[in-house]
Design a protein around this nucleic acid. Sequence first.
DNA 1: TGTTGTTAGTTACAAAAACAACTATTACAC
DNA 2: GTGTAATAGTTGTTTTTGTAACTAACAACA
Lengths: 148, 148
Amino acid sequence: MPSDFDLETFLPYMLNQAAEVSSLSFQQVYKKRYGMLRTEWRVLFHLGLYGQMTASDIGERARMHKTKISRAVHRLSERRFVERVTDKKDRRIAHLTLTAQGRAAYDDLRAVAERYEQTLVSQLQANEVDALRRALSKLSDTALGDFT
Amino acid sequence: MPSDFDLETFLPYMLNQAAEVSSLSFQQVYKKRYGMLRTEWRVLFHLGLYGQMTASDIGERARMHKTKISRAVHRLSERRFVERVTDKKDRRIAHLTLTAQGRAAYDDLRAVAERYEQTLVSQLQANEVDALRRALSKLSDTALGDFT
DNA sequence: TGTTGTTAGTTACAAAAACAACTATTACAC
DNA sequence: GTGTAATAGTTGTTTTTGTAACTAACAACA
């Protein structure tokens, strides 16, 4: 079986590599400016983008585990980026929204993200970007069960 | 600024998402069969693919930090997957090789990886795969300094 | 030789993630 | 209503990772 299999072309490996590299610089921005972790940044962005949400809503959209969200929300509300209001009808549910400060951070980081995106995209050709997006989204939607 | 920025199309986000999904099923194989972590699997693969290497060699190729490698090697040799031989001339250096057991694990996992790769690729069109590979490799090689 | 600097790799400690068990509240079946 | 199951979210404990400091061995050179 003299296949030309190579670690460097193994898709999961390449994906992780690219993901890591392309997250790093941006990560440093929200970390340095607002002391946020990736989970917190994600929660902030979801709230900024979609408005009021519950923790479960975010978990569904972001495919994040509820404990991650719980802790991210905790830290974000501790620092007054996020406000939580218990639902009147169902007291298990908390509605989350950005505070003014949270929105300011979101606006700031969003602008950075847009510029960052431009920088990344500029490394590629237009058609490559399209193909990349399409491929990534297909892969993300793929549920590869127990294929062994 | 009514830009159509969307979290779902933010490249670092998409990359992470796809990387996570496409690593998961495979991860479970080496975890379940050999109790390995990702770092250990990577070290094993590098040794299987390129033969004898030092920890530093692996670190360079895999872009992994030396502490990760040190710990991975420790666990792998603990379980007799990897053997370490101190260099005669320079006693700081340890040459790492797979044991018979390590090679068996490598062969097994490599076969799984190849099938896994096929499964992933089959989700995409041929030209998409090419574009994806090209794009990922460009992004990985990109050093995005302090762009703010 | 002795001093200083470098390199390979390890270890210790702090930060973060993963996993499981838990509380509180609501829903449903009888 | 009462008992059981389900849901939203939290907390505790264990793994894993990240960062920095460290040891051991070698190199370079006065």
